[in-house]
Amino acid sequence: MSSSSRAIYHRRTHNLLLLQNLLSLREGSSPFTLVHDTIEQTAKPLISRYIHNAKSSKTNIILVSFEALKPPGEINAFINGRKKDPSALQAEILVSCSADKRILIIIDTLHPLVSHGNSTSIIHFLLPLIAQPGLKTSLVAVYHDDIPVHPTQSIPAYTSYLPSPAQALNHLATTILTIHPLPQHMSRHLASERSLPEPVFGLAESREGVLVGISPNHPMLKDHAGFVLEMEHRRKSGRGVNDTFVLPLDPTSKELQLLEDHPAFKSPSASKVDEGEDAGEDFGGVTFDLGLTEKQRREREGVVLPYFDAQKRGRGEIDAEEGERGDGGRILYQMGREDDFDEEEDEI
């Protein structure tokens, strides 16, 4: 086993298991998960996966909503965060946490909280939710990367030296999950494989008036719809684990896989290994058969190449038929049943 295949085997087993633990909120795995998304691919499918997993492990779910009017499916508490003072909202969340059960707190966007002040205030808001003694909470909060932060209040001048809220949150988080749309990620991957400039979508198109990109239609993704998840998990030891996965949109599906294992992203060397394993499988994208049937193989072995024929004559029959010496190089061909002999054109 080569070192690269050993590395991918390690990632396949360890990192996938780690992601599954994170998504199913295994005890103490990640107190604060920060999810970065954009309008191109929102965190909705990931959030519904969290809710699905929490329900099956009988964890209480508290959703703090600034965007959605209605709760997505069954949850234990739906807290409307709009028009509320951050400290009042914090108190309301803590009241609905019961001490004896594990609790998942989901915040559907951090932006209203961020714009209430500076980056220190958001940390003051979140810390009690993450590390409240006596409470077993996991916090999952979504941050939209494409919304610039606009402070509402006149804030003191020194705050311009503070890190941006996104940076501060990244420092606080124990796991950072970044979400990308799969079709667009695949287009970029295909372009970079051909050394072409990578395509851009949505706001990055820099076209006046364009807000959201139109996802390219890859026929290959028809049966493999999903989204790309970039994970950065910080272990208690301080060691970081980074990896990229593809998750299906359906929250009940368990088909999590590494980005490299997704059919659309398999590197040529990796796919060669696979071909060796299951030879005879059809070659993708080729409309004719590259293999040989048993009959074709036998006949090919039986063909006498002109070079060998010349050698044989030169060596064995040199005395008997002197005249034929040296005129090797003729193509000797035995007519078969399937050959169509034409008197005028073909002569042997």
Partner: peptide, 28 residues
Amino acid sequence: CADGPLMQNQTTPLEIAHASFVMGLAHQ
């Protein structure tokens, strides 16, 4: 409005506020 100067590379408070408003709406 989604004009280029308001949505791309915002610098002034008005541009930031506008982009924040429009993208916030797009997310909802």
